[in-house]
Amino acid sequence: MSTKTRRALVLGGTGAVGSEVLRALARAGVPTTFTYHAAKEKAQALATELDQRARPLDLLDSKGLSQLAAALEAEGETPDVLVHCAAVLRGGPIDGASDEDWDATMNVNGRSAFVACREFGRQMAARGGGDIVLTGALDRSQSLPVPPLFAASQGLLAALAMAVAKDLGPQGVRVNVVALGLLDSGLSLGLDPKLRADYQSFSALRRLGSPAEAAKTIAWLALSNSYINGKVVSVNGGI
Rank of each mutant, 00 (worst) to 15 (best):
L68G: 03
V164P: 09
V83F: 04
D184K: 15
P93M: 07
V177A: 05
E49H: 05
Q171S: 15
P145I: 06
K42N: 06
T48G: 11
A28Q: 15
L46F: 04
L138H: 06
L205N: 07
S112L: 10
A158R: 14
A16Q: 12
D99R: 12
S153H: 02
A137M: 06
H84K: 13
G181V: 10
V21M: 10
L205H: 05
N225Q: 04
E100M: 01
L168G: 00
G96R: 06
I94K: 04
K231C: 03
S66D: 07
Y36Q: 01
N236P: 03
G186V: 04
R122Y: 01
G12T: 10
D192W: 00
N225M: 07
R118D: 09
Q44D: 13
I132T: 02
M124F: 07
R53L: 07
K216V: 10
G190T: 04
G172R: 14
V30K: 11
G92C: 06
A28G: 07
S226R: 15
G136K: 09
D198P: 05
L156A: 12
L149E: 03
L46E: 01
A8Y: 12
Q52E: 11
W220M: 13
T33R: 07
A159L: 12
P145R: 08
P170V: 06
L138Q: 10
R174M: 12
V81N: 10
L11A: 10
L25P: 10
R7C: 08
A16T: 09
N229H: 03
A222H: 05
V164M: 15
A8L: 11
E75R: 09
